[in-house]
Amino acid sequence: MKIWKQIVWSLVLAGGAFLGWAWFYPGAGDTLARYGIDWFSVSSTGQQAGDARSGGGAPRRGGFSREALVVVAPVGQGVVNDRLTAIGTGQAVRTVSIRPLVAGQIAEIPVTSGARVDAGDVIIRLDSAEEELSVERARLAAMDAEQKATRLGSLAEQRAISSVEADAARTELQTARVALKEAELALSRRTVTAPISGSLGILSVNVGDYITNQTDITTIDDRSEILVEFHVPERFAAAMTVRKPIEATAIARPGETFEGSVTAVDNRVDESSRTLRVRALVPNQSDHLRAGMSFEVEIQFQGETYPTIDPLAVQWDSTGPYVWRVVDGKAERVEVAIIQRNADRVLVEAEIAEGDEVITEGVQSVRQGAAVRIAGAEPNAEQQGGGGERPGSGGAGS
């Protein structure tokens, strides 16, 4: 094929591609108009007028329309900072570490590890033979002193002895009684009892062991309620108040939610982590929870309300993000500030309201104040190019 034929065919194909783009691409008319080429829109106007005279309804769809074809989505409403989720650690509402008050050899352990005990139940007994003898000796001394005081008191009443001797006997009686109480106290300390009701931990001693007052025997946990301690960001510090309801989920028991309330809020924010320490109390009637468990704590707040838009509606330029809002069939640029970006919606701060329509597709052909045509919407009178019947128009076409 000769070179001039190849050039002609290339020009024909290029011209056909240009005409196809100008006819079918929705924003072609605006693009050409920016370069001063308006004869496509004039041709379209003549075609629309011919359609109107012939009774046609809407103009032919194509790139010759001056209205940009766009897709819109309504503005919604979203809430942020309305809930807080934190990870906390559970503690028994009361925990006691058991140590003896005196040293000695363990003679008996009437309880087992993990058993449930009530306040006053015996946990261990130390060898107390010497203390029992001391109590018996003190008891006998007290009885002898009481008899002597009674006898001398009778003689003093008969004036057989002086009152000084009777007073000395009464003093000896009081001293003997005090000695008896000391001996009984020493004997009672040879028995270690539970100070609170709860569940025993693992016993770290055995019968025959010699222990001192520094020996940890076991712990007792009152887990009728669980204290969950967690930390919240400082922006929630003002909203954290005592008795605020919470929901806690044990990581070890997924699917079960336990309701509780805040019992204590720290008086200062930790400088290193910028968090506030909080404690909440969770009932544990079923006894499924244990001290040391990890919990996911959720707290509800009033939150802050912002408009939400489709992520495709957000556009960017050198000044920042903005959206195109459709008002009375025309595009209006609205500056926005992004508050939170989610997978399906973007929360923004802007002068838009719930129910407004913003452009999500076709933004490349949109200009400030220019008319737009919403895809799928019924065309209005201006878009129909006078296709509606007006008074007196019927005779003009005949």
Rank of each mutant, 00 (worst) to 15 (best):
A194K: 13
G50M: 06
V117R: 06
V205W: 04
P100A: 08
T95E: 13
G292V: 01
P100L: 01
L281R: 13
V314G: 03
P245W: 04
F301R: 00
R190S: 11
E259L: 08
S54Y: 05
I299A: 02
R325W: 00
N213T: 04
V111S: 15
S365Y: 02
G55Q: 03
V336D: 05
V314S: 06
A169Y: 01
E304N: 14
P59L: 09
N81L: 09
Q383A: 15
E354N: 06
F295E: 06
V192I: 09
R345H: 13
S393C: 11
V232K: 04
S398T: 10
R390M: 08
A337L: 14
A194W: 11
V135P: 11
M293E: 14
V282F: 02
G320N: 15
R390D: 12
P26N: 14
T263E: 10
I87H: 09
V178N: 11
A22H: 02
G15Q: 05
R139Y: 15
L84P: 15
N81Y: 02
P391A: 13
G46D: 03
Y210N: 07
V70M: 12
V122N: 03
W21G: 14
I352S: 04
K244V: 10
A183E: 00
G388F: 01
G153D: 07
E108W: 14
K148P: 11
Q383T: 14
A375S: 13
F230Y: 09
G392D: 01
R333F: 13
R333Y: 15
P283G: 04
T193A: 11
A49K: 06
A176W: 05
Y25I: 07
V111N: 08
G395W: 03
R61K: 01
P391K: 10
A149H: 05
P195A: 00
T171P: 04
E165C: 13
D209A: 12
G56F: 14
Q147M: 07
A291R: 10
A280P: 01
G395L: 12
T308M: 00
V79D: 00
G114Y: 12
I196K: 13
R53L: 07
S97M: 08
R189C: 12
S113C: 07
R137A: 09
F301K: 00
P311D: 05
P283V: 03
V336I: 12
I123C: 05
S224T: 13
E136Y: 13
E389W: 05
Q174K: 10
Y35S: 09
V262N: 14
V42H: 08
T45A: 12
V178P: 07
T85R: 05
I226Q: 11
E382F: 15
R151A: 10
R125E: 09
G362W: 02
E234Q: 10
R94Y: 00
E361S: 12
E354I: 02
R279E: 01
D127S: 03
A396R: 12
D121G: 01
R373C: 03
V242P: 06
W4G: 06
L32D: 00
W9H: 02
A291K: 12
E229A: 07
G15Y: 02
V135Y: 13
R277C: 02
D221A: 11
V79S: 04
S199K: 10
D216E: 07
G36R: 12
M240A: 04
D167V: 04
R66I: 04
Q147W: 15
R223G: 05
T308A: 14
V93C: 15
